[in-house]
């Protein structure tokens, strides 16, 4: 953000067009502007996720572009209910994403199981149980505008990060298995 805001005046002061900036801010700026997403749409929220990338909401303008291949993406948008049967697949897709990577949980189902918190035996109570989530978006389903807000929040987070070894946020590449299996609900 900071670089773009000041780019005009900086160019005025430096006739040769040379900009001096921290490597950190440059990298963060570039990363934040191009968060390619892995749409992990499993249920109802996926419809709003699709709506978000089409005509009216057009998320391409934020640099957020859905790529179905995890190896091309930076942020996984988990939209929908995750069941115990689906959980290993989601985990594996997360592990296949290259670092640095972020996770957005879209919808109440990813927060806590949402409407499926009580009385069911097959739903994971929130993806926080097995994924490191950066931004949660509440709603059942959240409007595309909320998702937009979530992506902008994530961008703020991304722009605060540093690539210096000491300051780098460490993320486990392989996740520990959650300590409960199917059927052990409530």
């Amino acid at each position: 953000m900071a670089i773009v805001d000041r780019i005009g005046e900086t160019l005025d002061r430096t006739p040769g067009g040379v900009i001096l900036t921290g490597v950190d801010s440059l990298v963060d700026w570039a990363r934040g502007k191009s968060l390619w997403s892995m749409p992990m749409g499993t249920a109802c929220c996926a419809m709003e996720l699709i709506a978000a990338s089409f005509n009216k909401f057009d998320f391409d303008r934020h640099g957020t572009f859905p790529r179905p291949d995890p190896r091309h993406t930076d942020v996984m948008i988990v939209a929908g209910t995750i069941t115990y049967k689906m959980m290993p697949a989601v985990k594996r897709l997360y592990e296949q994403m290259p670092d640095p990577k972020w996770v957005i949980g879209m919808g109440n189902c990813t927060l806590s199981g949402g409407i499926f918190y009580y009385d069911t035996y097959s739903v994971v109570r929130g993806i926080g149980e097995f994924l490191p989530v950066d931004v949660y978006i509440a709603g059942c389903p959240p409007r595309p505008e909320s998702l937009q807000d979530g992506i902008l929040r994530l961008r703020e987070l991304v722009e605060q990060e540093s690539i210096a070894p000491g300051k780098r946020r460490d993320r486990a590449l392989t996740l520990p298995a959650p300590d409960h299996g199917c059927g052990e609900a409530e």
């Binding site: 249920a43 109802c44 209910t81 069941t83 689906m86 009580y118 009385d119 739903v123």
Partner: peptide, 25 residues
């Protein structure tokens, strides 16, 4: 079965009006 959420079973624990939001899903 990757999206089996047990809606039919859940309905047994809800009153008749409370099942309507479940059918949305």
């Amino acid at each position: 079965g990757y999206l089996h959420r047990g809606i039919e079973k859940m309905a047994e624990n809800r009153t008749y009006l409370q099942v309507v939001p479940l059918t949305d899903r």
